[in-house]
Write a protein that binds this DNA or RNA. Structure first.
Lengths: 134, 134
DNA sequence: TCGAACCCTCACACGTATGTGAGGGCCAAC
DNA sequence: GTTGGCCCTCACATACGTGTGAGGGTTCGA
């Protein structure tokens, strides 16, 4: 099985993205990535999949389910080319709704991030007064 | 059972926060809220709990587990008063780590929000050319 | 006093993302 | 040729947040 440049099997992708093999297979099962297959059945990922997986992980961590990630992944392709014909009204509504939810999430995270940071600041000042700098 | 002003039972809190009773009990089980109890065993929530529940829901929706929410909720109290003695080094490290994770989440959401919005924009332009304004 | 509408505590079930392991091929180095 | 390290599928198990319903108490108005 000759390996083309920029192609890899699941182990390498797993290391590059710090993602369990199990999860990579799961993302595939959910239709988020579609690796080619070698004649031996091994999954064959191209280089671009690395970024795609990182994107998926980030969105999952931010609370989006795979069902939604599947909807928005096509929006992320660089040469905005293929995905116009299938722009149904429902799809557009879905995207609008998801943008709103992402806005809400961002606002919530920013607000709480600030509060936690301020709290931490105060704690540190308090600490440094009690036990001056090392 | 005389109801004091600003106090409520689970049904009212559920309506005010648009949150299932089941979830409110779960948040309590996880230590996120601690309602008083009437002599009949009914949960008795004060007014401030409304905001707290909304905060919890927002953070849950943004991907934070209750275990982490429990850590950061005390940071959000208005009169920053009570919570200094228990500022252990591990706690501080945890907060730092969570601030980092929130930053990553925010960046990821902002980036993808932008991409989806741009995509949507292009789709709409495309649509309007195909079938001019209503 | 009865019924409706609350409340309580279990406890089992679901969906989602992931862990884990069994059982088994492929391939390169020894 | 065998061993070790990849890969495969399948499938059961886990944690988390929530749905749902059984079985039962409280409160209040008709």
């Amino acid at each position: 099985m000759s390996r083309e440049v920029g192609h890899m099997r699941i182990g390498e992708l797993s290391e590059l993205t710090d993602t369990p093999r199990r999860s990579l297979r799961y993302y595939e099962e959910r239709g988020l990535i579609l690796p080619a297959r070698g004649q031996n059945g091994y999954r064959d990922y191209d280089e671009a999949t690395v970024d795609r997986v990182l994107q998926i992980r980030g969105l999952l961590d931010a609370g989006l389910p795979t069902r939604i990630i599947e909807q928005i992944l096509p929006c992320l392709d660089k040469p905005r080319s293929i995905h116009f014909p299938d722009a149904t009204p429902e799809m557009i509504a879905t995207l609008r709704g998801e943008i709103d939810r992402m806005d809400r999430r961002i606002r919530c995270l920013e607000q709480n991030r600030r509060a936690v940071a301020e709290y931490l600041e105060e704690v540190l000042v308090h600490e440094s007064r009690a036990a001056p700098a090392v």
